[in-house]
Nucleic acid binder design. Structure first.
Lengths: 191, 191
DNA sequence: GTCTATACGCTGATAGAC
DNA sequence: GTCTATCAGCGTATAGAC
């Protein structure tokens, strides 16, 4: 693989593991097997490289979600598929973890892809829920956007609980809990 | 206030704002208005001070939750009170944010108060939910522990979404969403 | 494109005077 | 208890040779 590509992937990994503050140019270079001068030839510096890495990660996350949400099945089934997708839970969410980094949240350029990713995800889930409501699968009084926000929040919060416990158990419970609440309100699709 | 106290409070603030990796002894000293030697006289070093600060923050968080959850009202009302309590949403959760810090999660001593706090909170919420179920307020098939995990996760994930959006809107929606799902399953208390 | 050299402030301490 | 050295190493670059 070429040098810029290796640098971006190393940065993606390190941002996921250690966040922005915890990731040094030196560590990126070492993981990529690339020299100092080489890194600064291809990228202006740490913020520039981080931006490329975050955009790449955001794209990937969105594509994965879309794969589940546009699959076959009823609305509730697709949301269940998305929530129960295999995940490396203890690593947490590579985008969500960036929200804890003041240098990311404080830089509009770096925060933008993070904001857009969650905005898109909430919108996409809301659309699926609205579909289910229109088909009679979900009750008419269900607020699609609020429910979508709750679903995304359960995922993100589930990662937090799992890392706190050093165990996937609370994550699995949280997902089960929200799915039970949602399916209790669901009826077989009619439309 | 005395010196150790000022150091602990400064560390609490900095851990909340910048996390463990982003918090330096020097910054702690400056915020506390305390000299280098003074800090190392009272504490063995950064991990020691962080441990004291995290324990203090965990106690406080637990006391605040207990105040809402042991208040008056039905089970669902108390959970609603807890979720709708006034919060500085964009600052995030001072305990939850630590789960993104590999140096915290990787150190058993530092992770312990974080784990215990969430274990306690889930248990406390589960007890309230079980109460509501026993009184007929909540359906007999509701899993108290799964639902409790989902409720805590919505809160923690709500902070993530709010910080991503630089707005409380997604937090408020997530809380409304989960409350709507929960109260749709609730009937007036009978026991 | 990649390498080495150089720089300066910060990190996280320890030592010892007062 | 608090203060002022002092320190080795890291963070985040820039400069210029090859």
């Amino acid at each position: 693989m070429n040098t810029p590509e290796r640098l971006i992937e190393s940065t993606q990994e390190l941002l996921w593991e250690r966040g922005y503050v915890g990731t040094s140019p030196r560590a990126i270079q070492q993981r990529a097997g690339v020299g100092q001068g080489s890194m600064y030839h291809h990228f202006a510096g740490k913020p520039d490289l981080a931006l490329a890495a975050v955009r790449r990660t955001a794209e990937r996350m969105r594509a994965q979600a879309e794969a589940q949400l546009s699959g076959p099945g009823t609305a509730v089934e697709r949301i269940r598929d998305y929530l129960l997708r295999e995940r490396d839970v203890l690593r947490g969410c590579p985008i969500g973890r960036l929200t804890q980094d003041p240098d990311v949240v404080g830089d509009p350029a770096l925060r933008q892809p993070v904001e857009e990713t969650f905005a898109w995800l909430r919108g996409r889930l809301a659309a699926v829920l609205a579909e289910g409501r229109a088909g009679g699968e979900l009750p008419a009084d269900l607020d699609a956007e609020d429910t979508a926000a709750a679903v995304v929040a359960v995922l993100q919060g589930g990662y937090v609980l799992a890392r706190a416990a050093d165990s996937v158990e609370p994550f699995d419970r949280a997902i089960s809990g929200v799915l039970a609440l949602l399916t209790a309100r669901a009826a077989p699709a009619t439309g």
